[in-house]
Write a protein that binds this DNA or RNA. Structure first.
Lengths: 145, 145
DNA sequence: GTTGGTGCAAAATCTTTGCATCTGG
DNA sequence: CCAGATGCAAAGATTTTGCACCAAC
């Protein structure tokens, strides 16, 4: 399955006239194997084994930014001064929502969208065409409440 | 009306055992007069007349952070690496939503909330108690679409 | 061999902190 | 007076950039 993603990356890079390099493979592999759903550039840089050709933090930033443009990952902002990314699910056209526990800091995901009615209303009332949204709920998770 | 807000600040500060100082007055006055609804620390620092006792950027950061704790303003994050604030409306218990135009960068506000159904569902399904939310819509405003 | 990619270090940006000094109560 | 607030500069933290070198194609 990871093999598939790596081959897919190679295909997409070639298609865009870009090079498929070792750092790009290693970074994709690292984020696929990352234990949490959300990761920062530093998270990824931190888990890359040092034995590989050494990968600089600048390359991680550049590569994650590239992956975002390619639609492989999405950039997230939980308001703590560090940008994070998550793997994009191929069947999603909108971002899902996040539940952020103010006590323990855990982040979980909401499958339901349910914003269609609101988006309709926004189009009608404000004449604003919504392409995407980002919704965060702050509160207490089941363990902390 | 601004007089009212200044007097109210003085009252709240006294109540909390804090000092009502000139920089705090000047900063409150500056954000009340700021031409847009959303402002960064640097925005506020930039419009303070130089003739006053000179106010350092650190004081602006500290004061806006204090005002946030006091419930006068809310911290916002539009994902561009700069934190902004907005005046809190006394009748709002939840944050309102924002429309962010990807073309011209304009930010407008949505009055409707309409998340109650979703919040109910989150409580039932995820056992998560929502205290607050933050919803941003990205797309094209009426001038840019 | 080109063109693009990488590593490194320096720079840029935003925010926080330490500390001597000042000031409101 | 004294606790808290301020100004300044330095330090932190995160992200971006310039440039010589390296590696895909």
């Amino acid at each position: 399955m990871n093999k598939d993603k790596l081959a897919e990356l190679q295909r997409q890079l070639r298609l865009a006239g870009l090079k498929s390099t070792k750092p790009r493979y290693i970074i994709l592999e690292s984020l696929l194997n990352f234990p949490r759903n959300h990761f920062s550039s530093d998270d990824i840089h931190g888990i890359i084994p040092g034995a590989n050709p050494h990968i600089g933090i600048a390359t991680v930033y550049r590569t994650l930014s590239l992956f975002e443009q390619m639609g492989i990952i999405s950039k997230l902002d939980f308001g703590d001064g560090v940008y994070r990314y998550e793997l994009k699910r191929p069947d999603e056209n909108h971002h899902h929502h996040h539940l952020i526990c103010k006590h323990c800091g855990s982040i979980s995901e909401v499958e339901e969208d349910l914003l269609d009615a609101l988006e309709d209303q926004i189009l009608r009332k404000y004449d604003f065409v919504v392409n995407d949204h980002e919704l965060k709920f702050f509160g207490l998770c089941k363990n902390c409440k």
